[in-house]
Design a protein around this nucleic acid. Structure first.
Lengths: 146, 146
DNA sequence: TATTGTTATACTCTATAACTATA
DNA sequence: TATAGTTATAGAGTATAACAATA
């Protein structure tokens, strides 16, 4: 009744399944904040880079310009992000006080979630992962726009 | 102009980005077959387990019963998968000759794609990944149905 | 001309609830 | 009652093309 699956020996498949498990776990951790993963990551990038632009956030997160629009829009509607005109076409993004509070809370939750998995893996293996995953990304990081 | 991103030090984030890169690369490799990743994996599981049921394929791939329907449906429409009534409610899935040909082609492409990344990582690190990723999955593998 | 933000739209995968017809 | 397959529907992420305003 348990099926064999030759995909189990493929790295891409294992990566996808592992990533799905961590995303689901993160989702549970963030559900109370009513924030989607894409919104949280956006919030954290703005926290790290006050006065950055929407396009820059997208570049940091591999999210296309067009797809940043509804994310920023929702964060502003909720009073977590503020923006200030720079020149006629670009904005400088910052967190509001509320946004900073939520970002801090989110980061604490992320780190609880991370700790659960780090403990599972142990120190030396974690280090290999942190060395290998960027190598995979660098192979051809998601190309933004065309 | 390059932003800092504290997420870079988080395993979940690195996994997701690395997985996205491999998925995009796989997508390019499979585009000529006009098969989506979910369809290819389904095809390969049926190849490995002739006469399995739709629900079983879903369990192997962490795809919910309801979401298997359009996948199987499209594979049958294209003449790649065949099914035979078992009892009044379950079917036995098999590949057609055409399906077997496509599955073989897909597997060859997957392995070319895999080889590119394996080469990048090297032998000992690859082994660590193949040991670690299932550990992450096992932490709480995607629970099917409710 | 190139860039920032935007709109509109489509596709892929995933999630839930409820139904049917069996067993 | 539980199971296999199904329908309908919604959400989330991602992709493309095209536009306005500005640099």
């Amino acid at each position: 009744m348990t099926l064999t699956n030759s995909l189990e020996s493929r790295l891409g498949y294992q990566l996808r399944r592992a990533s799905a498990v961590m995303m689901a776990d993160l989702g549970r951790e963030l559900a109370e904040l009513d924030l989607r993963p894409a919104e949280v990551t956006t919030l954290l990038v703005i926290a790290d880079n006050p006065d950055c632009s929407q396009t820059e956030v997208g570049q940091a997160l591999a999210i296309k310009r067009a797809n940043m629009v509804p994310i920023i829009s929702r964060l502003m509607d909720r009073g977590l992000v503020d923006r200030r005109r720079l020149d006629g076409r670009s904005h400088a993004l910052t967190l509001t006080d509320q946004g900073r509070k939520i970002a801090d809370d989110a980061l604490a939750r992320i780190d609880r979630h991370e700790a659960r998995f780090a403990e599972l893996l142990g120190r030396p293996d974690s280090e290999v992962l942190f060395r290998c995953l960027p190598v995979i990304r660098a192979a051809r990081d998601v190309e933004l726009d065309a």
